[in-house]
Amino acid sequence: MEVVAPYFSFWLKGAALTLGLSAASFPISAFLGLIVAFAAVSPSRPAALAAAMYINLFRGLPEIIVIFLIFYGSNIVLTMLAQPFGIQIGGTNPAIAALIALSIQFGSYAAVIFKDWMGVFPRGYTEAGLAIGMTRLQIRRRIVVPLLLRSATPALGNLFLVMLKISALASLIGVEELSRTTSIIAGSTREPLVCYLIAAGMYLVISAVSGFVQHRFEVAMERSI
């Protein structure tokens, strides 16, 4: 324990990056999910087809493969694009690659959540909007989206917790988030068991905090009705 103690500030940086990575990519994936869900239920066939392809592709691929493809793939593409101009590009930042991969991947899960809620969305609300002369866009922005977000909050909160844990895969491309920090400290102190127990504690604290935030969010949503 004494050996591990001096590493706490390094460790907390890792924990902050884990939380930050999920906190940054979650809104993106929720937004992406919302757009894809609207496309999936739209009367336009190409849009619906594209949405279905996106959902099936990323729901079916393992996160680790998407992370690897985006990180290493973008490096190869960047190098190839840069070569004719004789410039050298430093390569993608692993944290950004992980952010993009998580956002795209979890966008597909969020899209399914929204799409399911749209399926049971009462027709009367839309008709009421039309009756008072709102445009389709206004109905979406003022009626559909707020109600969807409210009903989907529990499912989205669940998705956020999954994302927190999946983000540990970013450690494999060198993002120094909580998992990678822990394995570095374990290797630097030769105290693996203590290190992984402390990391488990940190993950629990992070998910407890996000559970609390979600709860407050739900309460606030209830009141706003």
Binding site: P6, Y7, S9, F10, Q88, I89, G90, G91, N93, A95, I96, G174, S183, I184, I185, A186, G187, S188, T189, R190
Partner: peptide, 29 residues
Amino acid sequence: FVSVTCAQAEDTIKIGIDASYKPYAYVDP
């Protein structure tokens, strides 16, 4: 990060090392 990499000179050698093996390579507190 992005701005740093764009400014990188051509003679930079990018070296990757797994610093989780004491005493070969590790991270200090």
